[in-house]
């Protein structure tokens, strides 16, 4: 039944793409227009994606049980926090170097809330060095909320959420300082990282901390894979909120995202077959100026 409805959705989408007239890419002045006709494909993709996600969230709300596969890196967070507790050492959470306007930072803040809840239960100190001013209030709130939900609001130390610097390497220097002197036993790095990723991961390795890292920044993933014990790759970072909270609504959105991926795989395969047969009309639908 599921397969049939999936195929139905896929065919509806493909039918729409195939019968619709190809886009015109002639140069024209659109400065007085209210709609850019060259972007109609983007509008369709966005609406379609939104519809799928909202449908699955709604379905999940109605109580349909949803399976989610194991993500080793996210399971490792608890292990890392547990080890830090056993050793009587702090946990370091690094939420990347970009502002809260970056979706990766939002994902990092979600994980931070869960980590705060864990450390509060274990009574382990949690350090959160911050690189952007707007992240400071959000991180403070997340950590405070985590401690409160674990029933330990008194254990929350506001000074442990520290703004370091907006400058990438000054920030890295400050975080390295925490690693070297406070000797956290667990380094959790989630969010958007750039060249400083290797500095942080290597310094963490030198201090003997267990390290879990996750980012969607493709160029930094190799360094995390090499220097950390566990790495969360790309989309796994965004799946973290559903995975850690197990909240049906969020699990529903994950299911929706998976269906979109399946559709993309179908589109990709079809596009390649049509290109091979010399039919380029379909591919043109995905062209963006």
């Amino acid at each position: 039944m599921k397969v049939i409805s999936f195929i139905r959705v896929l065919f509806f989408f493909l039918y729409f793409l195939l019968i619709a007239s190809p886009l015109s890419f002639a140069q024209e002045d659109l400065s007085q227009s209210w709609f850019n006709p060259h972007r109609v494909n983007m509008l369709i993709f966005l609406i379609f994606f939104f519809a799928i996600i909202i449908y699955f969230i709604d379905r999940a709300k109605k109580g349909k049980s949803l399976f989610i596969r194991r993500i080793a890196g996210l399971d490792a967070i608890e292990e890392a926090v547990g080890r830090a507790t056993e050793m009587g050492k702090p946990v370091l959470f690094i939420p990347g170097i970009e502002d809260i306007d970056q979706i990766q930072t939002v994902a990092a803040m979600i994980i931070l809330g869960n980590v705060a809840k864990m450390v509060a239960a274990y009574d382990t100190p949690l350090f959160v060095p911050i690189c952007r001013p707007m992240v400071v209030p959000v991180a403070e709130e997340r950590v405070k909320e985590g401690y409160a939900s674990a029933g330990r609001p008194d254990a929350y130390n506001r000074d442990n959420v520290r703004y370091i610097s907006d400058e990438q390497f000054a920030y890295a220097a400050g975080v390295q300082g925490i690693m070297l002197r406070d000797r956290p036993a667990a380094n959790l790095m989630f969010g958007s990282f750039f060249a400083e990723s290797l500095m942080l991961a290597e310094t963490g390795f030198l201090t003997g901390a267990i390290q879990v890292a996750g980012t969607a920044n493709i160029h930094q993933l190799p360094f995390f894979v090499v220097a950390c014990d566990y790495t969360i790759i790309g989309e796994e970072l965004f799946a973290s909120s559903a995975y850690l909270s197990k909240e049906p609504k969020l699990l529903g959105s994950l299911k929706g995202s998976d269906l979109t991926k399946a559709i993309i795989i179908g589109i990709l395969a079809l596009g390649a077959i049509l290109e091979t047969l010399g039919i380029t009309q379909f591919t043109r639908w995905f062209f963006i100026e």
Binding site: F49, I53, I103, Q104, V106, A107, A216, G234, E235, L237, F238, A239, S241, S253, L254, G256, S257, T260, K261, I264
Partner: peptide
């Protein structure tokens, strides 16, 4: 592609 879908969904 995967990360973008995750980001859009978030």
């Amino acid at each position: 592609i995967g990360a973008a879908l995750g980001a859009i969904s978030t």
